[in-house]
Design a protein around this nucleic acid. Structure first.
Length: 419
RNA sequence: CGGGAGGUAGCGCAGUCUGGUUUUAGCGCACUUGGUUUGGGACCAAGGGGUCGCGGGUUCAAAUCCCGCCCUCCCGACCA
């Protein structure tokens, strides 16, 4: 992709103070339309798509099946579970021209249970896991921090359907470990706490938090043994009373629902003995768009975002400092083509801009690897390789750059394999 | 919904207290044109761009004072 033809509206100054909000705006990832409502710009969308790919891969490895449920939902479905009142003003409700009461789905337990109730009737069809990646709508009292809490946001929600509690336990544990993998692959170190089930309901739940100043949940870390805990008393592990208070941002939440939804919505099956039983359910959410903010919260410096390699909008940015020199520009295109063919996502900054502008933008948008090509090194037959995270530089022979380049990327990047 | 801050050019701001030749509303950046530059947001020159959030009021005169409303951000309450 050529920078000059791509839409990356970086900003020098913004008012917002929350770190991920500020950087998302400055780096041109998102654009506000109204409070709590944002457009995703090309760079932000690319990150989102890569997060989604990681989520899909890990869901599919559990043999979960992707579906896409309607965002537009009839309200009478919600009356069956009595969650209409429970959710109250959070739901965006309205009537269509025929007077049919509708809402924009804040979550999808009702719709998925209704769906499954229509098609599943035997123990032979269980267990089943369905998931989707979709936009949710919630009329938040106070949206905040850009994508941290917005009124329209993207969520991965998965639902498991089992014959019994034992099956649910297995699905739940499978999901738990899939979540650990997903967060790790996105470059995050989540903390897991057991949590209140809230309006989702059910018997047990775990939430996946990351430490972040934009977080909304408090937790504590023992200064003596390092253990994390939720209730302010003393460290449950070593009983020390010396602990620090931290803020956590919730990125994922998994619930054992049991049969509360299947009973209310008529999702039953016949077991081996012909006995009619309610399907035992679990539900599992990840705030995909919030995760994008969470990654920024944990990966930035004074100059901008530092994307983890796994979800960066591009793998490599080539900064062409002297595009007016034909020889240099055509060399940059040659490197660009070679790396692209090699399977890298490459951004080539060939704008007729002052060098400082290109460096500032490059550090701001945070592509993990930079290749700088300018007169100085070009005349010495070198190109410059910079690792965004620690700004370490490596000078590579420009006549034989490919293997050393790929090797140093591999070396720096233990986690993700490029093809 | 309670508390706080704010709304002036695409972005960031000054001007508002004390209404009026510092005001026919400015500055920085961005933008347009010409030129000089070119390894860290460069320089010179000339331009374009505003119903000062909206509505009402006070006044000879309102960005500035008064009343009402809308919007944005932050804290709280609430919430995945």
């Amino acid at each position: 992709m050529l920078f000059s033809k791509y839409f990356i509206p970086t900003l020098r100054e913004v008012k917002e103070e929350s770190i991920s909000f500020k950087l998302s705006l400055k780096a041109g990832l998102i654009s506000p339309l109204a409070s709590g409502i944002y457009s995703y710009l090309p760079l932000g969308l690319r990150v989102l798509r890569r997060i989604e790919a990681i989520v899909r891969k890990n869901m599919n490895s559990l043999e979960a099946c992707e579906v896409l449920l309607p965002a537009l939902q009839p309200l009478d479905l919600w009356q069956k579970t009595e969650r209409c009142d429970l959710l109250g003003e959070v739901m965006i409700k309205f009537k269509d021209r025929r007077g049919r009461a509708l809402c924009l789905g804040p979550t999808h337990e009702e719709v998925i249970t209704d769906l499954v109730s229509k098609y599943i009737s035997s123990y032979r069809e269980l267990p089943l896991i369905l998931y989707q990646i979709q936009t949710k709508f919630r009329d938040e009292l106070r949206p905040k921090g850009g994508l941290v809490r917005s009124c329209e946001f993207i969520m991965k929600d998965a639902y498991s359907f089992d014959r019994n509690e034992e099956g649910l336990e297995k699905s739940y544990q499978g999901m738990y470990s899939a979540y650990e993998k997903i967060f790790k692959e996105c470059g995050l170190e989540p903390l897991v706490f057991s949590a209140d089930v809230g309006f989702i309901g059910g018997s047990a739940s775990c939430e996946f938090l990351i430490e972040s100043s934009s977080g909304e949940d408090n937790f504590f870390q023992c200064k003596n043994c390092g253990f994390y805990f939720r209730d302010k008393d003393c460290c449950p592990k070593c009983k020390s009373r010396d602990y620090s208070e931290k803020k956590g941002l919730e990125l994922g939440h998994i619930f054992k629902l049991g049969t509360i939804y299947s009973e209310k919505l008529g999702a039953y099956f016949l077991d081996e003995k012909g006995k009619r039983l309610a399907i035992v359910m679990g539900c599992y959410g990840i705030g995909v768009s919030r995760l994008l903010s969470g990654v920024i919260e944990q990966n930035y410096d004074s100059e901008g975002i530092i994307w983890p390699e796994s979800i960066a909008p591009f793998d490599i940015e080539i900064v062409c400092l002297n595009p007016e020199e034909e020889e240099i520009l055509s060399f940059c295109f040659q490197v660009y083509n070679t790396l692209t063919q090699r399977g890298f996502q490459v951004l080539l900054d060939e704008r007729a801009e002052y060098s400082g502008v290109k460096f500032k933008d490059a550090y701001l948008i945070g592509i993990p690897y930079l290749i700088v090509v300018g007169k100085k090194n070009f005349s010495e037959d070198k190109l410059e390789f910079i690792w965004r995270r620690d700004k370490k530089k490596l000078f590579i022979d420009k006549k034989n750059y490919l293997e050393p380049l790929v090797n140093s990327i591999r070396e720096k990047n233990g986690r993700v394999k490029f093809n």
